[in-house]
């Protein structure tokens, strides 16, 4: 892709976002919607800048980030470990496969009330929900990646004298890395979404709680701010993971 095409792509991509903002502003300006229901975009962004400068709003962001990372990290560790184990050992595979088939399509959010009852209304229940939701994409893509590592890579390493127990970490794990990282990316976005929802359903802090508080008092401006914040957080985290990915996968052909 050359420079000019890239510029054109970026410009084209900005059109719908600009259009959306214009329609938003237009709707308010033309009086089609009262500002109490749809505050103008300028007001929303100003309010956001204002809030970002306050310590209390940053506390809410940190609470959300903490749960997000805790849940996501648990999901990454468990997902990769179980996925690799299921790909390598037929016995573990036979046990894991049917359980995953049942649990993967189960709407995890339905478990949230049970988690609340068992783990209380604090961090633990939310972190567990995030981990449960992010686990399956990571587990499945690890399993898929590990079981499709080219046989001849494994043979080459074995012929070079790699003992069988080292093959897992020297060949299968790096070979499955592209797929694992794709799974992590999906898991990260899911973590963002789930942590926010959990905080909306029941919480005393976090971005989701900010939205619900605003909704109860019909503060439309304050409802937009946490939504935009979580979207930005998602984009930033996604960008960071993308950077990690392109560093780790520098040797792999573009996917």
């Amino acid at each position: 892709m050359n420079g000019r095409d890239a510029t054109r792509d970026v410009l084209l991509g900005l059109i719908p976002i600009a259009l959306l903002l214009a329609i938003w502003q237009g709707t308010v300006s033309l009086g089609l919607a009262p500002p109490t229901l749809l505050p103008p975009p300028g007001l929303v962004f100003m309010r956001m800048a204002q809030l970002l400068a306050t310590a209390s709003f940053n506390q809410e962001i940190l609470a959300t980030l903490f749960r997000l990372f805790a849940g996501f990290s648990i999901a990454v560790v468990l997902g990769i470990a179980i996925g690799l184990a299921a790909a390598v050992s037929p016995a573990i595979n036979a046990a894991v496969r049917p359980v995953v088939r049942v649990l993967a399509p189960l709407p995890k959010v339905a478990l949230y009330p049970a988690l609340l009852l068992l783990l209380g209304f604090g961090h633990e229940s939310k972190i567990t929900l995030v981990a449960a939701d992010a686990l399956f994409p990571i587990l499945l893509s690890t399993y898929y990646g590990a079981s499709t590592v080219e046989q001849k890579l494994i043979w080459s390493a074995m012929a070079a004298g790699t003992p069988p127990r080292e093959i897992l970490f020297k060949v299968i794990l790096p070979g499955a890395a592209p797929s694992i990282l794709t799974g992590c990316r999906i898991g990260l976005v899911i973590s963002c979404i789930v942590v926010f929802l959990a905080e909306m359903i029941t919480s005393t802090d976090g971005l989701g709680h900010v939205l619900i508080t605003a909704a109860r008092t019909f503060q439309a401006v304050d409802m937009f701010v946490p939504l935009i914040t979580i979207s930005l957080l998602g984009l930033i985290l996604n960008g960071l993971l993308q950077a990690v990915r392109s560093y780790l996968l520098r040797g792999f052909p573009e996917v």
């Binding site: 976002i17 909306m200 605003a214």
Partner: peptide, 22 residues
């Protein structure tokens, strides 16, 4: 694709059910 992709990328991490109150 380049028209819609950035918009979808922005919407992607927004929890859809969270739009419910609005």
């Amino acid at each position: 694709a380049s028209f819609f992709n950035p918009l979808l990328m922005v919407i992607y991490p927004v929890p859809k059910a969270a739009l419910m109150p609005i």
